[in-house]
Amino acid sequence: MKKKIYLIALTMLLSVAAFNSYASTATDGALTILSKEQIASMTTEQKEARVEEIKARVNEIKAMDKSELTKQDKKELRTELKGLKHEANALGGGGIYLSVGAIIIIILVLILIL
């Protein structure tokens, strides 16, 4: 009986957990946003260099005087920053994301076990 409970709990846990890694394929501003396939084919040194390029571009955007920009220009900068963030997350390996439902199920399983 205990094996059945563990099997069900493990199945539920694995079905709720999600592994996400996002990268945009759009081209914005000075940097070209890379696709997932391009990122997967990169070496570690290339990934580190790309992260440094992204950091430099983000620092350029932060240093800009945004008070003189039009509404459309500000929107384009926000879109570029979002794309760069997604690409940086993809270069960094993404992460493990658990939904609220998964956390609740984990807590319930722990309560049942203990």
Rank of each mutant, 00 (worst) to 15 (best):
K2I: 13
K3E: 13
I5C: 05
Y6A: 08
Y6Q: 12
L7T: 15
A9P: 08
A9S: 14
M12D: 14
L14M: 11
A17Y: 02
A17F: 07
A17M: 13
N20R: 02
N20A: 15
S21K: 07
S21M: 15
S24V: 07
A26I: 03
T27P: 15
T27L: 02
D28N: 15
A30P: 14
L31W: 05
L31D: 03
T32V: 02
I33V: 07
M42T: 07
T43S: 15
T44W: 00
E45F: 08
Q46T: 09
E48W: 00
A49D: 12
R50I: 05
V51D: 07
V51Q: 13
I54V: 04
I54N: 03
K55W: 00
K55Q: 12
A56G: 01
V58H: 01
N59R: 09
E60I: 05
A63V: 03
A63K: 09
M64S: 08
D65P: 15
D65A: 04
K66Y: 02
K66Q: 12
E68D: 11
L69T: 02
L69G: 13
K71N: 10
K74Y: 03
L77F: 02
R78L: 06
T79M: 11
T79D: 02
T79H: 14
E80A: 10
L81I: 03
K82S: 01
A88Q: 09
A88C: 02
A88E: 07
N89C: 01
N89M: 05
A90M: 04
G92A: 11
G93I: 14
G94K: 03
G95R: 01
G95V: 09
L98S: 10
S99C: 05
G101I: 04
A102Y: 06
I103K: 15
I103R: 14
I103D: 03
I106P: 01
L110V: 09
I111F: 11
I111R: 08
L112V: 09
